[in-house]
Nucleic acid binder design. Structure first.
Lengths: 260, 260
DNA sequence: CCTAAGACTTTGTTCAACAATCGACCGTAG
DNA sequence: CTACGGTCGATTGTTGAACAAAGTCTTAGG
């Protein structure tokens, strides 16, 4: 069973079990290379709204700001481009990606495929959903919502869906889906009030968890489908609104964005 | 009104319509950066079998061989790693990826999802398959097979499937699928005689095309499902065989491959 | 046989420089 | 006034050398 996990391998339950507890530690972020750290910072700045969609990111400026060399910045850019967070054009550099309505539609098409397939798998008994992990995530989201930490609510909600998809135990599905979840966060940025977006999804996730825990998987699947339709519609509407108001037709040359 | 718009209407038989033909030029292959060219060469060497799976690729050696700087080589490595053709481990560099049976199973799970969904889409009338493009690809494959150019047969066969998937008109599905097709070519490498693998798939693709052209999409879907099962089985078997024979347990440290 | 210290190799990162390309500015011609 | 064409400055693309950090191999010793 080749589980290509970069970090500790879970098969460490043999021999002198003294170190086993250490293996379960949160692994305090190795973040090995400078490029990864740089990418992390840029990513964070994007999701905090400091680097808004459309913002060009010059290599020299980032190099100075992050205190790393230009080569390292370029390396970080490449990572973020492959995550679809930046768009790249030769000799023109990178800019923070604009998520269009078309993009959202495309992302949700993939979400439906992967998430509904996961439920189908569970219905057919091919794999099992991790009910307790799912429940924990809902609880975490509820606590964050109660405390008003809406950004965290959004993040945890996405992990909730990742956990569902993980039931298929497909490394590639997990990877692609994770990237989709990162990308869709660009769509969250158009909401000035995150509560508006995430607020009522928390109780619905709780309901989903209840259905799954109760074994009512068919009902859960139906609910999930509705959930996805509505989420897509809500983000699409928000994007349409914001693109009308703030004239963002400044998309310059050509029509689309390159660099996928 | 001499606005030289790129896509003027076809009524170009008047005035100074002289430039309109230029708009239809094939746009002469950019291949802009040295890193992309380097990646292209390495990719080609992998699929030609000169860089076999498991081969480590030292930066310095490639830098000298390709006549580009080490930084550019690293850039190329990163591209190929994100295509899943190379595996990467910090401070240990990259090596050509081993495709395991588990990988093949995972890839084919995705293939089924995407390809069968494309047929379902066509069945529901949501999108249409490009029958002529599909037919052209089969013809090309037939000609290559007749001439014994089996590597080309494999490539064209993959493009045949890409064309089917393209019916869904989803940029992200296309991208992910294209990457899967690249990756599965690593599985082709275990066949010493490519004809053994690709040979009888060509007539089956012809049959598939016939069914699609005839509008018999349900039958096509069923055939495609069988096709995929058999292809998976054939590659899996070949990998099991080759990993038994040539002791490839030289997978050194740890059990898996990192870097996905 | 196994272990450990040191030598060697390869990767990670930086820096400075130059070439290639892009975008804007600015005259000139119609 | 607008359209065209060239110049210039800024940014990206790429190089080569250099050094630090981590891994691998060799060798000496228990």
């Amino acid at each position: 069973m080749v589980k290509p996990s970069r970090h500790s391998d879970p098969s460490a339950s043999e021999g002198s079990g003294r170190l086993d507890d250490l293996a379960d530690l949160p692994a305090l972020r190795p973040l090995p290379t400078a490029a990864e750290r740089a990418a992390e910072v840029i990513r964070e700045n994007i999701f905090e709204g400091r680097f808004a969609p459309g913002t060009p990111l010059p290599e020299a400026a980032l190099s100075k700001a992050l205190q790393v060399s230009r080569n390292t910045v370029r390396e970080a850019f490449r990572m973020l481009t492959s995550e679809h967070l930046l768009t790249y054009e030769a000799h023109r550099g990178v800019m923070v990606r604009w998520l269009s309505e078309v993009d959202v539609g495309d992302i949700y098409r993939l979400r439906r495929m992967f998430e509904l397939a996961a439920l189908d798998h569970a219905i057919d008994g091919r794999h099992e959903l991790d009910v307790s992990a799912i429940g924990d995530l809902v609880t975490t989201a509820e606590r964050a919502a109660a405390a008003g930490r809406w950004k965290e609510v959004g993040t945890v909600n996405l992990r909730f869906h990742e956990q569902i998809v993980a039931a298929q135990q497909s490394p590639r599905i997990n990877e692609v889906f994770r990237r989709l979840m990162t990308e869709i966060r660009l769509g969250f940025l158009v909401f000035t009030d995150p509560a508006e977006l995430h607020g009522d999804f928390v109780p619905r996730n709780r309901e989903l968890h209840g259905l799954i825990a109760g074994g009512d998987l068919r009902q859960a699947r139906a609910e999930l489908a509705i959930y996805l339709d509505e989420a897509e519609h809500r983000i699409t509407t928000a994007i349409r609104g914001s693109s009308d108001r703030s004239g963002r037709s400044g998309r310059s040359r050509k029509e689309g964005q390159a660099g996928v």
